[in-house]
Simulated assay, not measured.
Amino acid sequence: MAAYEWLLLPAAGSAMLCLLLVPLGYQVIARGVIFADLAIAQWAALGTLAGLYFLPKHTLAGAPVSSLIFALLAAVAVHLIFRRLADAKEAWIGILYVIGASLAVLLVSGDPHGAQALHRAASGDLLWASWPLVLAVATLAALVWLLAWWCPGWMSGAVFMPVFAVAVTYSVSLAGIYVVFATLIMTPLVLGTLVGKGSFLSSCCAIAGHLAAIGVSVAFDVPVGPAIVVATLAMTLFWFIVLRGFASQNLRALGAESGGSQ
C-alpha cells in the first residue's frame, strides 16, 4: 500500500481541479463563451512556455508569473471581443486561439525539446503534481464555492472573467489544456444542460472520471491527460444514462398513479 502513497497528491489535485472548474463551466456555458476558455487556456500555456525561456525562476504559488500575465491579457481580449465585436465573437475568439497556438509553436521551434514542451502544455502530467500548485487550486476552489454561497450572483458580473483567467492559469499549469477543457465543459454540459443537475453532482462525476483515469494510467502506463479526457466523458455519459433512466421510471410511476386515481 505504501508504494501507492505518491498517488495521493495527483488524486487530491484532480479533486480540487474538478471542484474549481465544474462550477465555472456552468457559467461558461450560460454565457455562451465555451471556446473562450480554450483560447484563455492556450494563452496561459503560451505564457508557461515563454516563462521557460525568459522568466524561468519567476513563479507564484507554483505557476509561472508569465502564464498568469498571458491568461489575464487573453481574458481582457475576450472581454473586449464580447463588448465590441459580439456579432462575430466566435470568429475572433478562434483567431485569438490560433494566434496563441502558433506563437507557442514558433517559440519552441528552435528548442530540441520543444515538441516535449508543447506536449506537456497540451496534455499535462497530473501524476507529477506539486504541492504548491495543488494548494493553489484548492484555495481557488474554496474561493469559488464560498463566493457562490455568499454572493450567488458574482459569476454574472465583471469579476468573473479575471477570476476565471486565474483559475485557468493554475489549472493548465497543473493538468494541461485538454484536461482543463474537458473538466470545465463535459459534466456541466451533459449533466447540467441535458439533465438539469447542479454543480456538486457534476463535480463528483468529474472527480470519479479523473480518479479512474489515474488508475488506468498507472496500471497500463498510458498518458494521464488523454486518459482523463476519455474517462471523464465515459463517466459523464454513464451517469447521464443512469439519471435519465431514473427520470423515466419516475415519470412512469407518476403516470400510473394518476391513471389509478382516475
Results as ranks from 00 to 15, higher is better:
243 L>A: 13
238 F>R: 10
76 V>T: 12
236 T>E: 04
258 S>M: 11
168 V>T: 05
199 S>H: 05
15 A>T: 04
135 L>K: 03
22 V>I: 13
85 L>K: 06
92 W>Y: 15
155 M>D: 05
76 V>Q: 14
73 L>C: 09
185 I>D: 00
57 K>H: 02
241 I>L: 12
143 L>V: 12
117 A>M: 12
184 L>Y: 01
66 S>K: 00
219 A>N: 02
261 S>P: 01
69 I>Q: 03
236 T>H: 03
247 A>V: 15
75 A>W: 02
191 L>P: 13
114 G>S: 10
24 L>I: 13
155 M>F: 00
104 A>L: 09
159 V>L: 15
50 A>W: 11
5 E>R: 12
96 L>M: 06
111 D>A: 07
99 I>R: 05
170 Y>D: 07
127 L>H: 03
179 V>D: 11
34 I>A: 09
90 E>A: 09
160 F>Y: 08
74 A>C: 11
34 I>E: 03
84 R>V: 10
49 L>E: 08
209 G>V: 01
197 K>M: 10
159 V>C: 06
249 Q>N: 08
41 A>M: 03
173 S>K: 12
260 G>L: 15
140 L>W: 04
248 S>E: 11
230 V>R: 01
205 C>Y: 00
26 Y>N: 08
124 G>D: 09
177 I>M: 07
140 L>G: 00
236 T>M: 02
20 L>E: 03
50 A>H: 03
180 V>W: 01
116 Q>H: 05
87 D>S: 11
